[in-house]
């Protein structure tokens, strides 16, 4: 079978392209460590979040040197706690769940984006940089007030975080 030289060329290029697409995604996972929301978290009873260790009191707590855990509950129509206050230059693991219907949890303008599903816990770990303020939006239609459902994620300096005190206890 005769194959024209140009055809061989673009067959080769299309294979290179496929390998490059797979390669960049592999690089993302190995280099910067980009990860997905896993299903490894234990489930919760969405009707009894107030009796749950993690979500009875939505909060941010320190769990290690420069490591923090945030427990966030989405509801119609908002997020608890609001604002979520975390220190700059730290590793923050967000645990997000819902106590009523499916919500979205998107830190606007960033890659932090998860679903908040009743009974399930979405766990995403992010690294904060400089102090700044982000908006949080619900990106799953959740009812009549969906368009006003918003939260705040405030990244504050370490000293300011310590001064606030209450948020870490």
């Amino acid at each position: 079978m005769h194959i024209h030289a140009y055809e061989k060329l673009w067959l080769a290029l299309s294979i290179v392209l496929i390998l490059a697409l797979i390669g960049t995604v592999t690089y993302g996972a190995v280099g910067p460590g980009v990860a997905m929301v896993a299903d490894s978290q234990s489930t919760v009873d969405p009707g009894a979040l107030d009796e749950d260790d993690r979500f009875s009191e939505p909060r941010v707590e320190q769990v290690g040197e420069n490591e923090y855990e945030a427990y966030v509950v989405a509801y119609q129509f908002g997020f608890e706690p609001t604002p979520i206050v975390v220190p700059a230059n730290s590793t923050v693991t967000l645990h997000v769940t819902s106590r009523d219907v499916i919500h979205g949890f998107e830190v606007a303008g960033t890659s932090a984006n998860a679903m908040a599903v009743p009974g399930e816990v979405s766990e995403i770990t992010v690294e904060t940089d400089e102090p700044t303020e982000y908006g949080i939006v619900c990106n799953e239609y959740c009812g009549a007030g969906h368009h006003v459902m918003e939260g705040k994620l405030n990244v504050v300096s370490q000293s300011e975080f310590e001064n606030r005190g209450g948020d870490s206890e």
Binding site: L13, L17, A20, G28, A35, V107, S111
Partner: peptide, 25 residues
Amino acid sequence: FTILVLAWVYIYFIEFLGRDLVVVG
């Protein structure tokens, strides 16, 4: 091909990895 490669580099390395709060776990 060039457009595709440039668009992919822009979308992945600049828009996606360049944003704040990359999910790492």
